[in-house]
């Protein structure tokens, strides 16, 4: 019996969300008296693999297979399914990110395992297996019960903290059997956003709305992001007006985020926007309208024109950070 976590690597490296996954898996393993096994696909350095042991992973299965050079939901699912069977996984956990969200449902059908997508906390009970997830686009949370023998989860980023738990780790290669040409969807090109922290990885987000009046005023947003080591994002009207790229849109129909700090600049806070950001630990809002709904969701607020307030705030932040 074991807890299997899919530790996705990004060009051979793990992200903080991977260690959240390991820490989360480790806690479930402790409660169920089992061990945490990680599976990773592709080339990862021994140092990076050993680091997983810091967060409680006892075993790592490294899969190398030329059929997995390109990402295919079907081929990746076959590999993870074979590993799950080999280690008799009772719980299989993915990150709630684009690849985890794609593979988890497939695995769930193949293993006849119930899937809880986007869980935000540890199981409140193992029997029946009950986890908490968001529903109605972040407006509420719900207890979600999985009744099958095998359980599949995807863990929401930044909802569980990284906990060190130094463990003896064993690393081995795991051979999978994947028929050639299994997939009919094949990536032909990948375009990475250059040099910037992504919205889903950042601990701090600086978000701009229509109150900024136009794309030419985004310099101050970017400046604040640079001072705070944050990513920039925006409200829906801003991306619809093409002031900013669509991948920066946060809200119910954009990205749902849960950073430690969310700074809303000139955003009134429509219900759809709030649904996408209300998982943030601290929200700061700056807006001219004292009655704007964003102030109901915010912890700290300033009533004022962002074009006046933000440059002053940037100066104060820069001083504080000694930058």
């Amino acid at each position: 019996m074991s807890i299997l976590i899919y530790t996705e690597n990004f060009e051979g490296k793990f992200k903080k969300s991977t260690f959240e996954l390991a820490s989360y898996g480790n806690e479930i393993a402790k409660r169920t008296g089992t061990e945490v096994v990680a599976i990773t696909i592709g080339k990862v350095s021994i140092d990076a693999l050993n680091e997983l042991g810091k967060y409680g992973v006892q075993k790592v299965l490294v899969v190398k297979n030329s059929e997995l050079n390109d990402f295919s939901v079907k081929a990746y699912s076959v590999a993870i399914e074979q590993a799950a069977k080999a280690v008799k996984a009772e719980v299989i956990i993915f990150g709630n990110n684009p690849s985890g969200r794609a593979i988890a449902p497939n695995i769930s059908v193949k293993l006849n395992a119930g899937l809880a997508p986007g869980v935000v906390d540890l199981p409140s009970s193992i029997k029946p297996f009950t986890v908490r997830k968001k529903a109605y686009s972040g407006k509420v949370t719900v207890d979600f019960v999985i009744s099958t023998d095998i359980k599949v989860l995807t863990l929401t980023q930044n909802s569980y903290k990284v906990i060190e738990s130094e463990t003896e780790i064993s690393i081995s290669n795991f051979d999978v059997n994947i028929p050639a040409g299994l997939y009919n969807a094949k990536p032909i090109k990948t375009v990475m956003n250059t040099g910037k922290l992504s919205v889903t990885d950042a601990d701090v987000l600086v978000s701009g709305g229509r109150g900024l009046k136009g794309p030419e005023n985004w310099k101050m947003v970017e400046e604040m992001a640079e001072i705070l080591n944050a990513a920039t994002c925006c409200s829906r009207p801003v991306s619809d007006l093409e002031w900013r790229p669509h991948h920066e849109h946060v809200g119910q129909t954009g990205k749902v985020v849960a950073p430690d700090l969310y700074i809303a600049l000139g955003i009134s806070g429509a219900v759809q926007h709030l649904a996408g950001v209300n998982g943030s630990k601290v929200i700061v809002a700056i807006n001219t309208d004292a009655d704007a709904p964003i102030f109901e969701a915010a912890d700290y607020g300033i009533i004022g024109d962002v074009l006046d307030v933000v440059p002053k705030l940037n100066t104060a932040l820069r001083q504080f950070k000694g930058k």
């Binding site: 939901v73 079907k74 449902p105 695995i107 899937l115 997508p117 997830k133």
Partner: peptide, 19 residues
């Protein structure tokens, strides 16, 4: 907010999915 139905359909049909 499951976002799981597409991948599960692909699983049942044994075809690929792009989510």
């Amino acid at each position: 907010n499951g976002g799981q139905v597409d991948g599960m359909i692909a699983g049942f049909l044994d075809i690929d999915s792009v989510s």
